[in-house]
Amino acid sequence: MSDSCSPDAGATASDTSLCHGLPADAKLSLTLLVVVVSGLIPLEHWPAQGLLLVAVFMALSLAGVTVRYLARRLALFLPALFVFGLSIPVASAEGLAWNWTLSLWLRCTVSFLAGLWLIHVLPLRELLSVLRRWHCPVVLIAMIGFMYRYVFILWDELRRLRSARDARDFGGASTWREWTISAQLIGLLLLRAMERAERTHRAMLARGWDGSIRSLDDDR
């Protein structure tokens, strides 16, 4: 198994560019706007969709996203979309379906690239403050923060468990064995993480946690 252990994390606080300087609300609204507009552009207006694609590309280069990064993400994204879109004209032998598929590919790519721009310019801290301003329930925001904090720790743990497994596994595992080992890996991760959740809960109680969330008002 040659799986990667963590997906590409998005923005870090240290990045700086024209796009990074925008207010966080504007970043999120702008991306949503592009996605909605792209979804609303009718089939026959594909040149407009193309213009949108160019605009998103320009935004990406302004934000300092490298071509290599884009190519890597697109290489993972496009094949599934390709197969999905192709199943329409293959099943319904009408000429219209081909047009539809092409515009679907274009539309999905525009939205995907807009999403890449967003993750590149919006770090978690800004996202949480936007959600707070947009009146997202505070419990949900606390859970998002909590999850983001621990998901990296769990990835590290998974990596350690996997190398421990690889050190004892001398290759040539059958598919069935790979499945049972991977399931066991997840089970072990689950047990450890639940135990960690119990400990964290205790640590929260020790600092006066009673289930209600209080947070600092300002977002400096």
Partner: peptide, 26 residues
């Protein structure tokens, strides 16, 4: 009650991390 945030947040982290484990399809 007061375990809602740590337990749910951790479960979400577990699911996210577990999604990184690939299972080969026959």
């Amino acid at each position: 009650e007061d375990r809602a945030v740590p337990l749910t947040g951790m479960m979400a982290a577990i699911v996210f991390a577990a999604q990184m484990v690939n299972f080969p399809l026959l």
